[in-house]
Every structure is written in C-alpha cells, then in structure tokens.
Design a protein around this nucleic acid. Sequence first.
DNA 1: ATTCTGATTCGATACTCATCAAAATGATTT
DNA 2: AAATCATTTTGATGAGTATCGAATCAGAAT
Lengths: 189, 189
Amino acid sequence: MSMHEPPSIVAFFKALADANRLRAVGLLAHRPHSVEELSTILDLRPSTVSHHLSKLAAVGLVHSSTSGHYHVYSLDLDALHAQARKLASDESVKAFAPEHGPSDAFDAKVLATFLDERGRLTKLPMKRKKFQVILRHALGLFDDEGPWSEREVNRRLKTLSDDVASLRRGMIDHGMMTRDQGGKHYRRV
Amino acid sequence: MSMHEPPSIVAFFKALADANRLRAVGLLAHRPHSVEELSTILDLRPSTVSHHLSKLAAVGLVHSSTSGHYHVYSLDLDALHAQARKLASDESVKAFAPEHGPSDAFDAKVLATFLDERGRLTKLPMKRKKFQVILRHALGLFDDEGPWSEREVNRRLKTLSDDVASLRRGMIDHGMMTRDQGGKHYRRV
DNA sequence: ATTCTGATTCGATACTCATCAAAATGATTT
DNA sequence: AAATCATTTTGATGAGTATCGAATCAGAAT
C-alpha cells in the first residue's frame, strides 16, 4: 500500500518535462522557497504550484520542511546528481531496454515467419536484416570447434534449406565465416 | 521559419518522458536499429515508432542514416552525455530559472500591494517574509555612509510610514541595522 | 476560541499527446 | 513501368495532465 517504490526513470523525466516545473527547480537551485514565493515568481496560483511541487517530491527531487506555517521546499541535489550519473553511464542507458536480448523478439518473429513446423526454411528472405537473422540462426549449427570442410558445411546447412549455396555465400558476405584460399576450410569469425 | 533553434531543455526532458521512448533509447544504446525492428520489439505500430523517433531526433538524441530503404536510427551518445553534464552542474540547473533575480518578482508584488501611489505604506504586513521585503525596501533610504542618529532614522522612515517605531525595531530585529548602547548611533550591517 | 493565512485537496475545463488506421512518400526489385 | 516494401504523414480518438477556483486543512496570531 505505502511501499516506498523507487521512483522510476520515466517518472523522473516526466517530473522535469514541464516548463514551469523546470523553472521552479531552477529557483530552488538557488535557495529554498515557500509555495507563496514560487507562486508569485512563476505567476501561477498556489494550488498549481503545490501540484507541481508534489510531483517533484514524488520522485525525490525536492523536500519540504514545514517551518512556521510556511512549507519551505528545497532541492535535493543528491537525487539530481544520481540521475545525472545514470544518464552519463552507457550501461545504465542500455538498461532502459526491456529485458530479453534486444533482438530476441525481432528474431523470433522472423524465424516464426520463415521456418516451417519442422524447422526448415520455406524460402529465403530477401531483405538484408531478415536474412541476417536467418544467418545468425544458421550459425547455431556450428557451435563446435572448426574448421569445417565445404562438404561438412553443406551437410549441416542442408538441414535448414536446400539452397545451401545462398546460405553459405551469405555467411561469407556478412562476415560471419571466413574461407581460406582454395576453399578447403571454413571457420567462424 | 527554418531556424535550427537549439532544442530547449524542456523538449529534451519531454522526449525522454515516455516509457516506450525510453525503451527505444535503451535498445539503440546497444546498437542501431531500423524502424521495423523497433516496431516488433516494442510491440508498437511502425507509424507510432516513427513518431517517437522523430521526437527523439528533434532534440538530437538520435540520428537516422537511410541505407537501402531502411532508415537506420542510432543513438547520439554525445548529446546524451552533454545533457547529463548539464544535470550534474549546479550552475546549469540554476539557469533553468527565469532571468531576473529570483526575488525581484516577489518583492515587486509585495511592494505593489503595500505601497500606495505616492510610495507610502498603507499598513505594515505582519507576515515575516513580506515584512522583510518592506524592510529591504526601507533600507534603500540609507545608502549613504552612516551612522545616523535616531532622529535622522525616524525622519527618513517617516517618508514611508508613520509607524516608524515598528520599522526601526524590525530593522534591528532582522539584523539589518545595529544600534550602539545608549541608542545614539544606528549603522547598517 | 476565533480568526487569519498559507498550503493542500477536489472538481471542472481545456489542452497536450500517445496510439492506431489509412493514405502518401520514396526507394528497390522485377 | 509496375509492384513491393519500409517509412512517414495525416486524421481521429482516447488517456493524461496543467491550470484554475472553491472547499478544506493546519498553524499562528489576536
């Protein structure tokens, strides 16, 4: 009911996604202010200011210390800096993405489209992106140590599609496999 | 018309103030993606994704390089880091506030309320904050070198209000003036 | 105790915006 | 040239929200 759930990143940005709230934050960055002061400076009704401040407080950006019968709001610099660090860290930004490796959903969809119920390719997608998905899938057939002869490569690819030539060439072209001169040995990269 | 106006801070926060846009940013933090990919991963219609990406692009967070007939969007890390630095800098945050010294508007309003057209106080505000505004205003009457005798202080304050005693006492109480023992001389602090 | 005053809450209104479907655009393949 | 495909634009709709005024609440001053 009253769990102090950590304010989500979205909520944080929503709190700052308003011109007047940003102005308020800027003012509070100078020194604490009461609601009435902010109201006159921002030219907004006290009720509106109170509404804004409650949103800022909800994400921990401001704190109110009630002194006298003034509610004095002050900016929480630590909270600001914490979020700033998150934005600066590439890893944190990557974490904005939903779980599940980023391409899983797309790959799954593509594979579902082109693979029949027995796991074989009905036809090859001509779109580069989708073709790459197929190739990555095909690469899963080569999870042991290489290298492999061309005949071995063909044998494995055959379980996916009869058009082994296109698959084999795709792997080379997209830099997923290399072939030494003479074409005797194939290796993963 | 077509001026490349620098994307405002508000626009930047608005761009990130949406769950799906944040997810998109997270995905693009891993690697570039096409609209279709994002569409399937985010489970949104391509038109919606396009709309989101255009918002992100408007604030310089992403760039699109059209390859084939795919529009490949990639994250602009520099833009992100630049904004992160702004959030981390106290001075930048202060700059969110409108120009004009923060208290000007409040002071002006209070003075407008309590001063009549001839610049005299109709009555004294009893609220500390407003009273202080009046006192700061009154202090402007003493911009020459002190000290002043009590009679001189009274004479100057009289131009503001007949209740010179309250004003004089307020100046002392709020630490704006000091009085040597005996009350012969008043000085600014 | 009663009366002020500043702050918050509530209800209403107008505006913004996320989302989708359909149509338009632009580029690629046949 | 025609057809296809990814993307964008446009229009409509529904959800969200900024704002205000009125009512309520809580301290302070008289």
